[in-house]
Amino acid sequence: MNLTLKVWRQDGPAAAGRFVMYDATDISPDMSFLEMLDAVNEQLISEGQLPIEFDHDCREGICGTCSLMIDGIPHGPQLSTATCQLHMRKFADGDTITIEPWRAAGFPIVRDLVVDRSAFDRIIEAGGFISVATGSAPDANLMPVPQAAAEAAMDAAACIGCGACVAACPNGAAQLFTAAKVSHLNLLPQGQPERLMRTVNMVDTMEEYFGSCTNIGECTTACPKDISLDFIALMNRDYVRGKVKQRRLTGQRA
């Protein structure tokens, strides 16, 4: 296959960027998208041009490092798939592919297609944990967790933190990420003591960096792990409760 790439190049966080056109020639349809970029980079280096910097690591769709806006869709046209698992057979010979970095104020560009997603870490630091010091845990089977609850928590916990939700959102909101993280812990019995505090702290931190949710739903389509919008509703509910409820009484049942 022969393709034309229209790639965003930017020398540094403060530099002005621009699109540059590249030819990707003799691409095998069995290559992954990132392998195609590897091949282009090898070519660029041999021509004495700086290679295109892009984030990637595990290349099996789980680490969440890869982050490309491909033809206007985060992670490209194949839904429920991270960039690293997108293969060139999804494109046609002669295509022009536009490749852009994630765009959001919360994700400043580092260089070329690489963005800084450390705001996500700030959100987790604000409350994305259950406070249990090493060694202080009771026996794992002491607290049964209904299977449905464990599965629901796992659905939320499947988030790989790639940021596609933010990239897709016209508002630059991180609601889906934060909701997945909040819900993972809030759905489990172990997460109950810190539930309201966690939600409020994480949401407040999220809002320092990101926009607000207008329930457009583009995030969930972009999500390579199909995290559901329902988690956003759950988070919103807990946030309001967290602001209103007298937490000294939260130990009461019902």
Binding site: F129, I130, V132, A137, H184, L188, G191
Partner: peptide, 11 residues
Amino acid sequence: QCTAQGVPFAR
């Protein structure tokens, strides 16, 4: 430890 941290092990 992991269960207490909220690791959603299969149940």
